[in-house]
Structure formats: structure tokens, C-alpha cells
């Protein structure tokens, strides 16, 4: 009884919070509700027995996405205020100019409800016991080089997805850098001695934690993405406090760090192709080592990419 009650409450709160986050009159409150939604989703992932994802969601889905949106909000607010009392015009998107608002709202609401009904009808018609690929994955697990099934899928069975995904990460940062110059948070550590001493402890600890997550990912929840997210958190902290400035002035070093994941992964794929005749097909018995090397390079790129996304543009001082 109690588990059902817990699940029911969690689901209801998640759905209600999603509605509030997107339709709250106060945008700032909406963003906070959105971040809270991410944390609750992490709990939902735990209830669905997906601890790998709970880690990723808490760090990336809620934490980093929330920080991104929050800092964008602050930037936009500042600009709206600078635009002197015409917030209504500034805050609108490209489609908002002439819309018969209420009518379309009702229409779209009805459409969305109909869509939800159809989706529910289809989803509930699915077989109650799915076949899934659990059996296949577990049968091949001993050959995969790792013992955590999710890592095995990510870096061996479906490693090609992950290669393209690392490509997406790099593409995102290239796209963002092409768009705009990032803004440095104006922080002066000298006025905040407590923060400085905390960072002295926490930043190395986060870096060690990222390495630990990477290592443990072979056998338990964790891996390059979770570790990368932690590294990204450390980088955001460093950027916020102004400590990351010196690092980011070294353009080529940063760019190399951003691309090393794609490069190592791609070169490993090509070498494996020459060795075994299959793209990303690791030589027998060596899969574990190959995965570790690829993940280590990916960890650096993921951490740097996610952390630098926070800057909202390419580094470079005014």
C-alpha cells in the first residue's frame, strides 16, 4: 500500500509541477519550479530502478539545465530593464506578434488533451510483460569488458550511438561559440574568503569524484557522463568564482580538451576497424581497456563542454 501511495504522490506532484513550471505567471518562480521538477524526476528514475539516470538527471537534467536557464533569465531581465519599460515587447518570441490568443489556447488545449488520450490508448495497449533486450544484454555482458550493463550498452553494444552523441556535444559548443561571446560572471573572491576556502577543498574533491565515477562506472552506476557532469559542476563553480579565467585564456588547449573525446573515440573506432574489421569492434579480451581509454577522453570533453555551455558563448574578454 505504502509504495503505491508514494508512487502516486510522486507522479501527481511531477505532473502538477510541470504544469506550474511552464505556466506560472512569475517566470522566475517557473524556473525554480522547473529545477525542482528535475530533482523529483531523479527520484522517479530511482523508483524505475535507473540509478545511472538518477545521477545524470540530478547533475545534468536538473542542475546544469537549471543553472543555464537561470543565468539566461538574469541576462534577459537585465536587458529588459535596460530597454526601459517596454518589457512586453521584448519578452515575446517570434510567433507572438499577432495571435488570437484565447481562441487558439482553447483549440490547442483540446488538441493536446486529444493527443494525450490517443497516446494513453496506444501505450496501454502495449503488452504488459515486455520482452526487452535484458536477456541478450546479460548474455553478452561477459564479453563486453565491463560488468555494469548500462555502461556495456553505452560503450560497447551501442557504442556508435555514443560516438555520435559525443559529436553532438562538440557540435553544441561549436554552435554556441559561433553565436555569441560568453559573459563572465563578475565575482571578486577577495570579498568572499569563505567561498575561496570552500572551493580550495571542493574543486579537487569534485575532480577526484569525477575520476571515481568514471572508474566505478565499469561495475556500478556511474561512468563518463556522470563523471563529466561532476567535472562540469566543478568548472561552473570555478567560472562563477572567477578562478577559471586563466585556464580559458589558453584557447587551443581548451579547444583540444573539447575535441579530445571525439578524436580519441573516432581514432579508436578506426584502429579497431583496421584490427578486427569492424567499426568500434574492440579486439577480443581487450574491451575493458579500450572502453576505459575512450571514457577517460570522453570525460574531459563532456566536463569541459557542459561546463563551458554555462558561459553561454565563446570565451574572450571584452
Amino acid at each position: 500500500m505504502i509504495p503505491q501511495l508514494l508512487d502516486g504522490t510522486l507522479v501527481l506532484v511531477v505532473v502538477a509541477l510541470a504544469w506550474r513550471a511552464l505556466n506560472d505567471r512569475d517566470l522566475f518562480r517557473g524556473v525554480i519550479e522547473f529545477i525542482a521538477l528535475g530533482l523529483l524526476l531523479a527520484m522517479a528514475w530511482l523508483r524505475l530502478r535507473a540509478p545511472d539516470l538518477a545521477l545524470a538527471e540530478a547533475a545534468v537534467g536538473s542542475g546544469l539545465t537549471g543553472a543555464l536557464i537561470l543565468s539566461a533569465l538574469v541576462r534577459m531581465r537585465r536587458r529588459e530593464q535596460a530597454a526601459a519599460g517596454q518589457p512586453a515587447g521584448v519578452a515575446t518570441g517570434p510567433w507572438a506578434k499577432d495571435r488570437a490568443k484565447n481562441f487558439s489556447r482553447v483549440l490547442l488545449g483540446a488538441l493536446s488533451v486529444a493527443m494525450l488520450g490517443t497516446l494513453a490508448w496506444a501505450a496501454l495497449s502495449l503488452p504488459a510483460k515486455a520482452r526487452g533486450l535484458t536477456a541478450e544484454a546479460l548474455a553478452r555482458l561477459p564479453d563486453s569488458g565491463v560488468t555494469n550493463p548500462v555502461t556495456a550498452v553505452l560503450l560497447n553494444f551501442r557504442a556508435y550511438d555514443t560516438l555520435l552523441e559525443i559529436g553532438v556535444l562538440l557540435l553544441a559548443i561549436v554552435g554556441v561559440w559561433a553565436l555569441r561571446r560568453g559573459e563572465w560572471p563578475a565575482a571578486d573572491l577577495r570579498e568572499r574568503p569563505l567561498l575561496l576556502s570552500l572551493l580550495r577543498w571542493v574543486l579537487p574533491l569534485l575532480a577526484v569524484g569525477a575520476g571515481y565515477l568514471l572508474w566505478i562506472g565499469a561495475s556500478a552506476p556511474g561512468g563518463a557522463f556522470q563523471g563529466g557532469a561532476l567535472l562540469a559542476g566543478a568548472l561552473v563553480l570555478a567560472l562563477l568564482s572567477g578562478l577559471g579565467r586563466r585556464l580559458l585564456r589558453r584557447g587551443r588547449l581548451v579547444r583540444t580538451g573539447l575535441t579530445i573525446g571525439v578524436l580519441v573515440f573516432g581514432v579508436a573506432g578506426a584502429v579497431a576497424l583496421g584490427w578486427t574489421g569492424g567499426l568500434l569492434q574492440y579486439p577480443t579480451g581487450q574491451a575493458g581497456a579500450w572502453i576505459l581509454v575512450i571514457e577517460a577522453a570522453a570525460l574531459v570533453s563532456i566536463g569541459l563542454t557542459l561546463g563551458l555551455l554555462y558561459l553561454g558563448g565563446r570565451p574572450g574578454e571584452k
Binding site: 557540435l171 575535441t259 573516432g266 581514432v267 576497424l273 567499426l279
Partner: peptide
């Protein structure tokens, strides 16, 4: 077939670095 993917992908990464 693999060259079709790896070629431009690695080139993209290098074009960004250099």
C-alpha cells in the same frame, strides 16, 4: 562505410581545434 562517418567527424573536430 566507416570512412563516411569517421572522415567528416574527425575532420570537424580538427577544423574546430585548428
Amino acid at each position: 562505410m566507416s570512412g563516411l562517418i569517421l572522415g567528416p567527424l574527425v575532420a570537424a573536430a580538427l577544423a574546430f581545434t585548428f
